[in-house]
């Protein structure tokens, strides 16, 4: 009897036609995913730099505040943050919150906390002599940071930065839970429409796989190039 069941299951007829016919729905979802990902990077990176500089500041209040923000957003699950921004924040400040705004807001802040630590690590990794050299030729702290330290630090940060961006891209799937029409959400919709969850979710997994693989291959290529010019961290 068990053999019967196994045989019956193995003979399950995969039928991708229904899924592929609605590919435009999934592609729209993919586009929406990329939009949120891109915007979260655009806002998250500068915010991360700000938080990092704040944390390294000599003003105690500022540095402790920034530390707290960074630690808070690093230790709470992104899904909880998303729910908070989507369900709680609108009541608190009485504004209309759309799934799109909540998603971009959450992931900008969430990833900025992680970017901040990458910035801080990068800046700290630069030899102290560089700061002293800049000071010796009369640069202020600010101009030595922007002209001497950051250009060198950014190169070292690229691998960590790429890894975090990939992480962000994967985390964007969470926004389907607040009904933003990203790839995951479109997949849920499609699966409940054509009753073919196996095919739909398999196709979506493959789409994510290739999207992320392309991105990670690009960054590996970049790392090798940096390693060649002696500026990367790979050896």
């Amino acid at each position: 009897m068990v053999v019967e069941i196994v045989r019956e299951r193995l003979l399950y007829e995969w039928d991708f036609v229904a899924t592929l016919a609605d590919m435009d729905l999934l592609l729209l979802g993919l586009w929406n995913t990329i939009q949120v990902f891109f915007l979260a990077l655009v806002f998250g990176v500068p915010l991360g730099l700000g938080l990092a500089l704040g944390r390294m500041s000599r003003i105690l209040v500022l540095s402790q505040l920034c530390s707290f923000i960074i630690e808070f957003f690093r230790t709470t699950p992104p899904l909880v943050q998303l729910f908070w921004f989507f369900f709680a924040l609108p009541i608190l400040i009485s504004v209309q919150m759309t799934p799109f705004v909540a998603s971009v807001l959450t992931f900008s802040i969430q990833s900025s906390a992680f970017f901040a630590e990458i910035f801080r690590g990068g800046i700290n990794s630069i030899d102290k002599g560089q700061w002293e050299a800049a000071k010796a030729i009369g640069m202020t702290r600010k101009s030595s940071l922007t002209r001497i330290i950051l250009p060198q630090a950014v190169k070292r940060m690229i691998p960590a930065f790429a890894e975090r961006s990939i992480e962000l891209l994967k985390t964007t799937t969470l926004i389907s839970t607040v009904s933003y029409a990203d790839l995951m959400f479109q997949a849920n919709e499609l699966a409940s429409k054509n009753f073919r969850p196996l095919e739909v979710y398999t196709v979506v997994a493959i789409m994510y796989f290739f999207l992320i693989l392309t991105f990670s291959q690009l960054t590996i290529r970049l790392e090798y190039r940096l390693a060649k010019t002696g500026e990367g961290t790979l050896r």
Binding site: T202, F209, I212
Partner: peptide, 14 residues
């Protein structure tokens, strides 16, 4: 290279 949420949903529904 695939998001965890996709994996969980795949295991649950597919």
């Amino acid at each position: 290279n695939t998001p965890v949420l996709v994996q969980i949903i795949w295991f649950f529904f597919a």
